[in-house]
């Protein structure tokens, strides 16, 4: 159902370009209405001859009760919208970010202090033992460096007769 309404909305948006009446604020559907271009090249659109006539009589749309401007000024028929706006609230929302999805974040948050210290201690001991092992390994290999392969003169490497 939602897709249907969206489709309908899209159809309206693409196929029809609605204009707004410059006097009354009414919508002007395609192939309707009159365009009036004043001497200062301002463009006015009128949905009906009534609007055009009132405009040319220099009537003020703010003083004519059925126009959109008047109704907006006197807050006619907009009670629902106001109520809707008030009900809107900011909602705090949790979600995962890069490298840490929501589950891990929640787990971290729910940890107690004791668990955390335990983990820290464990990590420290682990690191210490690893360090010790490394030192033991380092102490063992003390072989002399560069004692492999027969010695070759540079001249030979560059290519004597054998190279040809």
């Amino acid at each position: 159902m939602a897709s249907l309404t969206r489709k309908a909305r899209r159809r309206e948006a693409y196929s029809m370009k609605l204009e707004i009446d410059s006097f009354s604020g009414y919508r002007i559907y395609p192939s309707k209405g009159k365009l009036f271009v004043r001497g200062d090249s301002k463009v006015f659109r009128f949905a009906s001859s009534k609007n055009a006539s009132l405009f040319l009589q220099r009537k003020n749309p703010r003083k004519i009760a059925w126009t959109v401007v008047y109704r907006k000024m006197h807050k006619k028929g907009i009670t629902e919208e106001v109520a809707k706006k008030r009900s809107r609230k900011t909602v705090k929302h949790q979600r995962g970010i890069v490298g840490a999805d929501l589950a891990t974040i929640a787990a971290r948050r729910n940890q107690t202090a004791a668990v955390r210290t335990q983990q820290r201690l464990a990590a420290i001991t682990k690191a210490k033992t690893e360090k010790k092992e490394k030192e033991v390994k380092k102490a063992k290999p003390q072989r002399p460096v560069a004692a492999s392969g027969p010695k070759v003169s540079k001249q030979q490497m560059k290519g004597g007769k054998a190279g040809r």
Partner: peptide
Amino acid sequence: PDGSYIRFDD
């Protein structure tokens, strides 16, 4: 052609 009308001031 679309049925609407246009007029200018001069």
